[in-house]
Design a protein around this nucleic acid. Structure first.
Lengths: 216, 216, 216, 216
DNA sequence: TATGAATGAGCATTCATTCAT
DNA sequence: TATGAATGAATGCTCATTCAT
């Protein structure tokens, strides 16, 4: 039911969480990814995707149940990518400070290395609320959030971080800043994914009141 | 060409930038605002809007040139609101630290006080690139950015802020965190607009390396 | 929501149940009637109907909710016609024999006078089982059946009719013979609607064992 | 070109025309039979049939030229069945009265014993008019009609039957009543195929004005 | 025999928009 | 001001059918 392209599985890339290659995707999903990035879910027609992919319309439907199915596949691919990166990034460090820095770096690398795929996350709102895959996706997203939340709480408890507000709101702040990267970043711009990631990590450390480990 | 509802004009509300009433809007725009918030620009049909507003389709076209025109009107209303707030907020303070705090607070109040209107900003990507109003809108947005950028640069120069990265990227970080508020905030939740705004201001000050002026 | 054409209402034509004019119908329904007669419900495309009616596709949808809605409208129009005829035909007689004769005549006149409309009844099976109008339609059909069934039972009780089988099955026999008229009758053939109706009435009287009141 | 299932050939079952087993059919035709019965020819997709039969789509095409070919196969199977039954039923009797009774009984047994197959006859209208098998099928149907017509004429001539109308129209009446059995009969209902068949035979005899040979 | 993969043409339906009134 | 009625173009999706394997 799916094209013979390497599906990224969760945590499949433990060592190379800093890698900046876009997630390999079958041609139809790759086309859909670009189309959704450019025009949004509702602004993209199934014909746009087929044309971009260079396949016929029924072929698209042979590989995917429907438009929502394509969205699901992309959302999951993207989430697998971040989740894998974040897990590996955290496992790569020990102190809360290093772990947070690594995690933010991982997230921003995800955003910049595969801008189009990462931006699809914003189309989650158009996934039918009764779609059976929604729950799974949200579960994975929650795991990412929980991983970060845990670091935050440990860092606060250990006085590595100095904040006086709501930890959950702080988490939203950090994740929000990262998520928005997809709206302004462009690979042809002056800054490399690694540079942006490092910069965002540094700013995030300051935002949580961590000591000056900053470097850009 | 527009319904007899009070159009907010730029800087019209200098004193009450902390006010939390939604921008008053004619019924058609109010309906469109909610519809765009719920289903996005392309996911909303002109009929949806008319039905929500309780008017007929031709009536909608009497008040607005077309669907893009409705989007423009909402974008401008939203931008007028933030711009007015931010200007007033900055004018209300003197030091870079206070000014940044006030500005972030103003922006977040805008996001939380009129969630639906603020969220429409994200639909700018669907405004035709050759639409004559686009330039004007982007100009206003640039003004907001420039106001913030100026504070940042002054704060860095005066050693009120301590950062070593790219100032423009730092600005994107801060604005990104604020913009994302519309994706998670809900008025019926535990936190009031004022609380979120204060918390975001405090985190932002830490993010720019300002001294501990935090309060939540 | 419906075109300005005279909708036949139940029992609206008490005196002229022998009239042989097709039920007047708005152009879209008339086109649909012919199309469904020729190609069946599923064999007819909404475009076929629009083309036959000489209207555009959206115009069709302006007047009818969807394809099922067109089917419903036709089914109801047809059933209104028979029900009205049958009621009047029965009221026009007193003895079971005369009443049955009149009723069969009325039904066959309905079948022959508006062949296409009558034949649509067979498409009921394609009306969604959860369509809210289905119940109403079936209720009307049941009324026709009950009217006939009542005549049958009274005729048997009064020894006007002589049968020894199941009365309900006998009813099905009679109605089946009448319903099938739409599959072979053609207005350009040798026999007029009145002739076929009289002949079917006579045969039906024999089928229920009524005395020789036959005439063709 | 056809699956290894016993194809019923004309007149192959002279002795057991009262048998009530469904005609044995290869799995693909059996699936198609049910599908056509449920949803009609145009309401059934080739995929529906393949899915019901549990075979792949190309496999279906291996066994049948196309969708029309499946329809032809079912029409012929059904017609073979009635024709065989009717021939045998008539050969089983001598007087017009007994022959008509037997023939009607045979036809109704065909309708009730294999409801789905019998109902496919109604889809003849969707068989392309230039399909080479159409002529053959219609020829067989005409033979059934002629067999009945002959009985009718002999019965009238011999004064076994007493009718004063058009004999061909009377034939249509009888066949119509029988054909409609497929629209209301259900095997799980109160009446057995034999009961319905006997009842219909009795009613038919009365309808042709035969003396009281009725029995149910 | 059997099937995974493909497609041109068509499906029912909805889109943004207009116009006569 | 307001609207009933209309439409060309597009929407997501499915159709019967084929072909390489």
């Amino acid at each position: 039911m799916s094209e013979p392209a390497p599906a990224t599985t969760v945590g499949a890339t433990p060592g190379d969480w800093r890698q900046i290659e876009p997630t390999p995707l079958p041609v139809t999903l790759s086309a859909a990814k670009d189309a959704f990035h450019d025009r949004g879910f509702h602004g993209t027609s199934i014909r746009d995707i087929a044309a971009r992919a260079g396949v016929s319309l029924p072929t698209l439907y042979y590989h995917h149940e429907n438009k929502q199915g394509i969205l699901v596949a992309l959302l999951e691919a993207g989430m697998n990518s971040v989740l894998g990166r974040v897990r590996a990034a955290i496992a790569d460090a020990t102190t809360p400070t290093e772990q947070l820095s690594n995690a933010i770096e991982a997230i921003v690398l995800h955003m910049t290395a595969d801008l189009e795929l990462a931006s699809v996350a914003r189309e989650l709102r158009y996934l039918d609320h009764d779609n059976p895959h929604r729950q799974h996706y949200v579960g994975m997203r929650t795991e990412v959030e929980d991983l970060l939340d845990d670091i935050l709480r440990r860092g606060i408890a250990s006085c590595d971080f100095h904040v006086d507000g709501d930890a959950r709101e702080l988490l939203r702040y950090l994740l929000g800043a990262c998520q928005e990267v997809t709206t302004w970043y462009h690979p042809s711009g002056a800054r490399s994914p690694a540079q942006v990631a490092a910069s965002y990590a540094a700013t995030s450390l300051r935002a949580v009141g961590a000591g000056p480990t900053t470097n850009v």
